[in-house]
Amino acid sequence: MADISNSTSTNSAQAVKAGGLMAWLEPQQNRILVLAALAGIALALPLILNNYAMEVMSSVWFYVVLCLGLNIVVGYAGLLDLGYAAFFAVGAYTTGILTSHFGINFWLTIPVAIFFSICAGVIIGGPTLRLRSDYLAIVTLGFGEIVRIIARNLEITGGASGLIGIEKPSIMGFELNEIQHFYYVFLLLAILACFISYRLQHSRLGRAWQYVREDEDAAEAMGINRVGIKLYAYVIGAIFGGVAGCFFAAKMTAISPETFMFQQSVLILLGVVLGGMGKIPGVIIGAFALVLFPEVFRELGSMRILVFAVVMLIIMLYRPEGIWPAKK
């Protein structure tokens, strides 16, 4: 017994030494304090930023939603999805088509988009999640391409030029048409995404994802249906992407197939890997880096993906847990 208490105390002493900030963040009230401060800053930002900066920040919150969605698939369930942009496209095109061709109210398109995202998730995930994880990676890659090609070639999706004139949504007669409005919409979505991610991670389902990620066979032996659990992750990720797509269409009022290329999926994945797979603060940092880096280093232009790819390689080789430090 003496041994045990000894080793725990040295452990915690090391933890304090290793990361003062992380140790300070350990108690719940400190964390709530930090979150409240950050939320306050985020809410106040429109007062001090110009329109250009507002655009960039809206984009940051938007990528936070997408990255958190993909994080459920990659970070929580340990599945590599290389066609995540396809779900984003499903949501964007559902809203685009329903509002511009059928004049349906924007808010009503969201449940429809969720429905289609679930369908797409089940159709792709259902059969492939039984197989080895690398098959899923390549099938999702193929699926991403299929969705883009379909969008390019159908009349209803507007072909290669895409859809234009998508109606801006309004809340009780108040039309969302300025960048400030969308800033708050995306901020709200990002907060909601954090909340849902957090609750999922710390639940029966979240634990099951971790079991399956660590040892599939042992998890299966403990009575966990690995295919079912992975499908949950895949479909929930799809819903995040789909809903983000709806709001993307509403903000841009125009969408085209090129927005949903393979590079888009890779960018979202990069955000997840960069900050730290499976860790909400890490993924948020990743999304920030993803959007802000090219804005700060504008002269890089089309080289930015190259720089990102090199960074991704270095992270995988030397710091696989990402920017955000791992627990313990």
Binding site: V310, L313, M316
Partner: peptide, 12 residues
């Protein structure tokens, strides 16, 4: 998952 992401990075 790590090696798959590494391979993806090399590809990019």
């Amino acid at each position: 998952l790590s090696i798959l992401i590494t391979a993806l990075a090399v590809s990019m």
